[in-house]
Amino acid sequence: MFEARLGQATILKKILDAIKDLLNEATFDCSDSGIQLQAMDNSHVSLVSLTLRSDGFDKFRCDRNLSMGMNLGSMAKILKCANNEDNVTMKAQDNADTVTIMFESANQEKVSDYEMKLMNLDQEHLGIPETDFSCVVRMPAMEFARICRDLAQFSESVVICCTKEGVKFSASGDVGTANIKLAQTGSVDKEEEAVIIEMQEPVTLTFACRYLNAFTKATPLSTQVQLSMCADVPLVVEYAIKDLGHIRYYLAPKIEDNET
């Protein structure tokens, strides 16, 4: 028996919005510590890792470990039926081939439930090792989304260059070049507006805009985003989900060639 209950459907909606562009389907791995999702997009260039801790739920029960393969498009359709303030509960029997998603209005007057078929997905599980990153940048999530959107107009790839002075995003294409530099914030008044750079070694890496822009779909989940970089290692873009867990995107770098 698996049961997980969240006070507000809006969080789950936002989580789905943050991953459904990259992934068509994914497996939700449930255990008594929480819910885990890990999957690569079809092109195997990026990877999504979602962690929702059990203690972040209003109610969480998971008797046996359970893997539920879901079509994320269908899941998003179901979540559209919920009001933002509704309670949401996910339920499944052990070894079931369906999952039930139930919405209850705040005043308990309306209860709707949806049953969705599960899928058998044989996805690769990748072990994600720990790494010392050369650079870790924390910045406002909105700012990052804006930068990615703006730079995508100039080129299909973005160069992220992190030094002691700050972090620079640049793109060059037929139109010309674009550079956006962010310096570390001097004094931190509002934590959510700060730009914080921890650097051991300068790093310059190139990434495809398409994926970065897909990652920024998670912006509504968090005020801050954390970019971790290291040469020849995938970029990690992390959005914390307050009191519940985090969503991390991994993106394999592009190989810079001299022509572009």
Partner: peptide, 24 residues
């Protein structure tokens, strides 16, 4: 793919530990 690393930065490198998971 690498920028040159100054010795100063190198020394910083060792103790620093931003434990992060990486992908491979």
């Amino acid at each position: 793919e690498r920028m040159s690393v100054s010795p100063e930065e190198k020394t910083k490198n060792a103790p620093k530990s931003v434990k992060e998971e990486t992908v491979a």
